[in-house]
Amino acid sequence: GNAVQEIMIPASKAGLVIGKGGETIKQLQERAGVKMVMIQDGPQNTGADKPLRITGDPYKVQQAKEMVLELIRD
């Protein structure tokens, strides 16, 4: 079955996860074999953390989460 996890991405790092024209998030999805969606909560909310929703095989979702956390670590 499918697992769904959401991680909060600091607004300052959201661009890093998505990448230029969505390149990075696309590569992450391909590498991890999961679906990732950045939940954009309207323009008034630009400074707030953005939830990144990861959907897929539970094991792969976990892997994907680690990859993203690695990416946004300072």
Rank of each mutant, 00 (worst) to 15 (best):
G1A: 08
N2D: 04
N2M: 15
N2T: 15
A3W: 15
A3L: 15
A3D: 14
A3H: 10
A3R: 15
A3T: 15
A3S: 15
A3V: 14
V4F: 15
V4L: 09
Q5F: 09
Q5D: 14
Q5H: 06
E6Q: 14
E6V: 11
I7A: 01
I7Q: 02
I7C: 02
I7T: 02
I7F: 04
M8H: 06
M8T: 06
M8G: 05
M8L: 08
I9L: 07
P10D: 03
P10L: 00
P10E: 03
A11R: 06
A11H: 05
S12T: 13
S12A: 14
S12I: 11
S12L: 06
S12H: 12
K13N: 05
K13R: 04
A14T: 15
A14K: 08
A14L: 15
G15H: 12
V17N: 01
V17E: 02
V17M: 07
I18T: 14
I18G: 05
I18H: 12
G19K: 02
G19I: 00
G19S: 03
K20A: 14
K20T: 10
K20I: 05
K20N: 12
K20C: 05
K20Y: 11
G21D: 11
G21Q: 11
G21A: 12
G22W: 06
G22F: 05
G22H: 05
G22C: 06
G22S: 06
E23N: 11
E23F: 06
E23Q: 12
E23C: 12
E23M: 10
E23V: 09
T24I: 06
T24Q: 12
T24E: 07
I25N: 02
I25Y: 03
I25T: 03
I25R: 03
K26A: 09
K26D: 06
K26L: 07
Q27M: 13
Q27T: 07
Q27H: 13
Q27V: 07
Q27A: 09
Q27S: 12
L28F: 04
L28E: 01
L28I: 11
L28D: 01
Q29F: 01
Q29K: 04
E30H: 12
R31Y: 04
R31I: 06
R31G: 06
R31C: 07
R31W: 04
A32F: 15
A32K: 04
A32N: 14
A32V: 09
A32E: 04
G33Y: 02
G33Q: 09
G33R: 06
V34Y: 00
V34R: 00
V34P: 00
V34C: 07
K35L: 06
M36P: 01
M36H: 00
M36L: 08
M36A: 04
V37Y: 09
V37P: 01
V37L: 11
M38R: 02
M38A: 04
M38D: 02
I39N: 14
I39S: 12
I39T: 07
Q40M: 07
Q40T: 09
Q40L: 08
D41K: 13
D41N: 15
D41A: 08
G42A: 11
G42K: 15
G42D: 08
G42Q: 11
G42L: 05
Q44C: 07
Q44M: 13
Q44I: 10
Q44P: 13
Q44W: 07
Q44Y: 13
N45P: 09
T46D: 09
T46Y: 06
T46V: 13
T46R: 10
T46S: 10
G47V: 09
G47I: 04
G47F: 12
G47R: 07
G47E: 10
A48S: 10
A48E: 14
D49N: 10
K50N: 08
K50Q: 14
P51R: 13
P51A: 12
L52W: 01
L52M: 10
L52Y: 01
L52I: 09
R53V: 12
R53Y: 05
I54M: 08
I54S: 02
T55H: 07
T55G: 03
T55C: 09
T55K: 04
G56C: 00
G56Y: 00
G56D: 01
D57L: 06
D57P: 12
D57A: 12
D57Y: 04
P58H: 13
Y59V: 11
Y59M: 10
K60Y: 03
K60I: 01
K60R: 09
K60M: 06
K60C: 13
K60D: 04
V61S: 02
V61F: 01
Q62S: 09
Q62F: 06
Q62P: 03
Q63G: 09
Q63V: 10
Q63Y: 11
A64F: 01
A64W: 00
A64H: 00
A64G: 09
A64E: 01
K65S: 06
K65W: 02
K65M: 08
K65I: 10
K65P: 01
E66H: 04
M67K: 06
M67S: 08
M67D: 08
M67V: 05
M67A: 11
V68D: 03
V68H: 02
V68N: 02
V68A: 04
L69W: 08
L69A: 12
L69Y: 13
L69I: 06
E70K: 13
E70H: 07
L71C: 10
I72E: 03
I72D: 02
I72F: 05
I72C: 15
D74N: 06
D74F: 03
D74Y: 04
D74T: 08
